[in-house]
Amino acid sequence: HEITLHINGRRVKLRFRDEKAAEILKEAAKKGLDEEELKKLAEELWR
């Protein structure tokens, strides 16, 4: 699955395995994680 989040006016595509991962990524984006941090988090969730 993929999700596209808008971060600092940019579109960031993240891959994720399940809905739980999608929710975690959305929450992290709301908390203000930047693009690099979100990509790292997405990679961690993928494993």
Rank of each mutant, 00 (worst) to 15 (best):
H1E: 08
H1G: 15
H1V: 10
H1A: 11
H1P: 05
H1T: 08
E2R: 04
E2Q: 06
E2V: 12
I3D: 01
I3N: 01
I3T: 02
I3M: 15
I3C: 04
T4A: 06
T4P: 01
T4V: 13
T4N: 07
L5K: 00
L5W: 00
H6E: 14
I7W: 02
N8R: 06
N8M: 04
R10F: 05
R10L: 10
R11F: 15
R11M: 15
V12Y: 02
K13N: 09
K13T: 15
K13S: 10
K13Q: 11
R15G: 02
F16H: 08
F16C: 09
F16L: 06
F16A: 15
F16Q: 02
R17G: 04
R17S: 08
R17W: 14
R17K: 10
R17E: 04
D18K: 01
D18N: 09
D18W: 03
D18Q: 03
E19Y: 09
E19F: 09
E19M: 13
E19Q: 13
E19T: 10
E19W: 10
K20L: 12
K20S: 14
A21E: 06
A21I: 03
A22I: 12
E23Q: 12
E23G: 11
E23C: 07
E23D: 11
I24C: 07
E27I: 09
A28D: 01
A29G: 06
A29N: 05
A29S: 07
A29E: 04
A29K: 03
K30H: 13
K30T: 13
K30Y: 08
K31H: 14
K31N: 14
G32Q: 05
G32F: 06
L33I: 11
D34S: 15
D34F: 07
D34G: 12
D34C: 09
D34L: 10
D34R: 10
E35Q: 06
E35I: 15
E35F: 11
E35M: 09
E36N: 11
E36S: 12
E36P: 10
E36Q: 10
E37C: 05
E37I: 07
L38F: 03
K39E: 07
K39D: 04
K39N: 09
K39M: 14
K40C: 07
K40R: 12
K40T: 12
L41R: 02
L41A: 02
A42F: 04
A42V: 04
A42C: 05
A42E: 06
E43A: 07
E43S: 06
E44D: 14
E44K: 10
E44Q: 12
E44A: 09
L45K: 01
L45M: 10
W46Y: 06
W46T: 03
W46K: 01
R47N: 15
R47K: 14
R47E: 14
R47G: 13
R47H: 15
R47L: 15
